[in-house]
Nucleic acid binder design. Structure first.
Lengths: 182, 182
DNA sequence: CTGCGGTAGAGACAATATGCCGCAGCCCCT
DNA sequence: AGGGGCTGCGGCATATTGTCTCTACCGCAG
């Protein structure tokens, strides 16, 4: 029978090579695109069962690829991957139809797991851990807040800085850093 | 015309009082439930336009309320609020049908904003009023969060600093300064 | 009484972060 | 061509943190 076909959209050279190999090794067929245009061409010409999209592609987000993918194959499953994870972007991705959202760094097993996870996970499974939560660290809170405001202003850094009453240069520097682990 | 009816499910005394008042003040009709059972009763007896659910209700999550709400009124909009935000719970909530997900601390404007507007809506005319609210500054947000956590630990600075993953000396210094003006 | 473990307040110094400058490159619009 | 917005980034003075250290206070077990 045919192998399952995965679309990998990722602009990081190293990561995409490693990931591609890992997927091939698991007996998937893999197509790779480094940017939105390449991805769209592939989507038009091929039927994918799965897609792994890096959220940050140069200037754009990869969110625009979700619709074409779903249109091409409504039953395909889509995973958004990002090194700059935030609740806001996660919510947006899911609303747009992504099936899961994962923060880098993540290894191939995690990624595949998140991609394959049963979508019919009615909330029966995932609750017991609802109790042991800790408050967010101030840094994490700050990161989430920044992401939210940034998202509200369509990624406009200058405007966001103004709203947040912080210097644009400062915001810029904060955004270059990675989100803080929990 | 009838006021819009909001269901507030929140087990925190103080917060729910404040929130209720803020909502009434904005001319909404508000029903409040402190736990899942109360909420279910209300859902069965009333049609809600909106719902604000605290994710953490004692032991349970409030995610189980999403289905009944949507069943009761498919066009109702649901906001999940939580003090212990995480990407995974956010993803799960949205998958289950919540319309937005917000981390506390957040003020009434932010909460209402998150509840009412949906930037992914193609319906551009959906916002009759300019929902232009100013986001909290990072400083203010930090202050509120610190106060909340400090309060949860009965004013214990050492413990609060540990939870917030900041140095005790730093917290100590922050507390000596005064509340940040907005 | 004394020691142990926890907390609080504060000084000192180095490591970072931030505010503020300026500059160059891009776009978009007129 | 110019004006005005946004972005990325270097440099530098200043402000804020992280760390370490000391002192002191409190409650409690030994």
């Amino acid at each position: 029978m045919d192998k399952e076909h995965i679309l990998l959209v990722e602009d990081d050279e190293v990561f995409s090579r490693v990931m591609t190999r890992a997927l091939l090794h698991r007996d998937y067929e893999v197509s790779h695109a480094a940017n939105e245009d390449e991805a769209l061409l592939l989507i038009k010409s091929t039927l994918f069962n799965y897609a792994i999209l890096d959220l940050n592609l140069g200037g754009h987000t990869s969110l625009g690829l979700i619709a074409p993918l779903k249109q091409n194959n409504p039953s395909s499953r889509i995973l958004i991957l990002t090194g700059y994870a935030s609740i806001t972007t996660a919510v947006e991705a899911i609303k747009l139809g992504a099936d899961n959202y994962l923060a880098k760094p993540a290894d191939a097993d995690e990624i595949l797991g998140a991609l394959l996870l049963d979508k019919n996970q009615t909330n029966a499974a995932a609750h017991p851990e609802a109790t042991h939560h800790e408050p967010m660290s101030v840094r994490r809170l700050e990161w989430e807040h920044i992401q939210k405001v940034l998202n509200e202003h369509d990624g406009n850094i200058s405007e966001t800085a103004r709203q947040l009453k912080m210097h644009r240069r400062t915001l810029q520097r904060k955004l270059q850093k990675r989100p803080v682990a929990k």
